[in-house]
């Protein structure tokens, strides 16, 4: 069953067409990787899905509902959550508080929000946040200020924050960037665990090893166009993809 579908998405900035008619589908429970060389438009696609930018053309359907006319802040209510390429936690709030921000749509109206975090509905959300932090092995850092944490830990906190929204589609923008091999391993295990619980994911990532371990399908973008689609292993062998990354002439590959 298709959970998420993009139809013929187009976006130009100042006359330069950055996204040129991209279409894709993500089935329920699938993990789709969006890969491609720098400047291919991967993050722009995320920003269009998110509502950072408004597409010039095309539809973005989550569970049959078109997100394009919807205000960015309402999209999370339809099950869309994301992590950011450059970490965007609030440095002078604690890890737990940052994670709680992710559950904003479950926090009730203005009056419920004016209650201290340990009362009423906030109490239940706090227990939930602690549970997710524990699952992620981050309990020890719960009370620390987000700004004081190591880079790798902050990346994982961002994922937990996005999960607090109980999303149907989780967008991960370069979850591995800046992590060392060991940190990548920890993150991979964690994402596999989350995936096993049934969360559908779209991942922008450069590390093909990571993509191969997490995702069951990959779409390759180059200059704002889809140039290949298949399993991670298939697209990695695709001549068009290799050319896009290495910039070789197609003829040379024909002989290779």
């Amino acid at each position: 069953m298709t959970l998420f579908r993009i139809e013929n998405l187009r976006k130009s900035f100042g006359g330069l067409e950055v996204i040129r008619g991209v279409s894709l589908e993500v089935a329920q429970g699938q993990r789709l990787a969006l890969i491609g060389p720098n400047g291919a438009g991967k993050t722009t696609v995320f920003n269009l899905i998110n509502g950072y930018y408004r597409p010039d053309e095309g539809r973005i359907l989550l569970d049959g509902q078109d997100l394009v006319p919807m205000a960015p802040r309402l999209r999370i209510r339809h099950g869309l959550a994301r992590s950011f390429q450059n970490i965007r936690l609030i440095p002078h709030l604690t890890v737990e508080e940052n994670v709680l921000l992710g559950a904003h749509i479950h926090a009730g109206g203005m009056l419920a929000q004016a209650l201290p975090l340990f009362m009423g509905r906030g109490r239940k959300l706090r227990e939930q946040a602690r549970g997710l932090l524990e699952d992620a092995g981050l309990t020890a850092h719960r009370g620390a200020l987000a700004g004081s944490l190591a880079y790798g830990l902050r990346k994982r906190v961002e994922v937990v924050r996005a999960l607090m929204a109980r999303p149907r589609l989780l967008l991960l923008d370069e979850p591995c960037a800046g992590l060392n091999t060991q940190e990548r391993g920890v993150l991979m295990e964690e994402l596999q665990r989350i995936a096993a619980s049934g969360v559908t994911m779209m991942v922008v990532e450069h590390d093909m090893h990571f993509v191969g371990g997490l995702c069951d399908r990959a779409i390759v973008l180059n200059f704002g166009e889809k140039i290949a689609e298949g399993t991670p292993a298939e697209v990695a062998r695709d001549p068009a993809v290799i050319e896009a990354y290495l910039g070789h002439e197609p003829e040379k590959y024909a002989h290779a």
């Binding site: 999209r75 609030i90 921000l101 904003h104």
Partner: peptide, 16 residues
Amino acid sequence: HAIEQDETMTGLFGVH
């Protein structure tokens, strides 16, 4: 505090 630090990100989490 979240708005002060990062208005856009906070909005994406559903904050009006």
